[in-house]
Amino acid sequence: MNRYARLVFLSVSALFMLVPLYVLVVNAFKPQQDILANPFGLPVEGLTLDFLAQALDNPQFNIFRGYAVTLLFVVAVNVLSVVLAGPASFVIARSPRRRYRLLMLAFLAGTFIPSQVLVIPVVYVLKTLGLMGTIQGFVLFETVLTLPFSIFLYAGYISTIPSTLDQAAAMDGAGRLRTFWQIVFPLMRPVVATMIILNTFSVWNDFVNPQIILGPGSGLYTVTTGVYAAVSQYSTDYTVVFPTLLLAIAPLLIFFVFMQRHIISGLTAGATKG
């Protein structure tokens, strides 16, 4: 295939990839009859912001509240995940003991278990602990789902950091905890960034876990469960569907456009965990 044929083919493919996004954006600004009459046209005549405003003010699902709740979960899971997985990885990576190698294997095994399989027994565990339907229960479970892969990545990364650094810190009288947080952790920035990207997307986009653990009864909607509540019953009222979906994906898409290189490599690393 010569250079021009390749470019033409890629451009046509790119167009096909982008058409759904185009349809989503243009129709978010049109009334229903315009959408039905001319779904692919630009909203020149009937251009309106009414439906976007309605979607922002949907009594069924307040999207700003959805952003806030989801962002809270994203931050909580990321912080907890680093605080739990970081020090544990440090001990695992630095200790030659058999018990830590076994612990590493136990965490690794967790990367192969799909969370859909876990959700039923986790409901049982959360009920027993009195955490079902609570923010704490949801955040703890989402955090646990991040642990296996975090520990795998962190421990691998820490083993590339010379242990002479820790020994020097120990000589200066720093304890293990302090050595980790003050000496080793600042050097882990790239791998922590990868994990944060990965966790941010997986928490933001998760649907099953918030839907089941938080449940519609809790009144707590993440962006995905809120979209489900707002859109699923009105799936042919396109003045609800398009503006709601646009608002749901806008933050992540903007984030993606600006950070695409990091996000692509982060999410691809995550995909390999299966």
């Binding site: 695992i92 965490f107 278990i113 876990l118 986790v122 049982y124």
Partner: peptide, 21 residues
Amino acid sequence: IMVLPATVLYAVMLVVPVGLA
């Protein structure tokens, strides 16, 4: 302090559930 919190949480919410399933 460094290892136990992650291990216990992992055990309660991932290892136990697999057995529970």
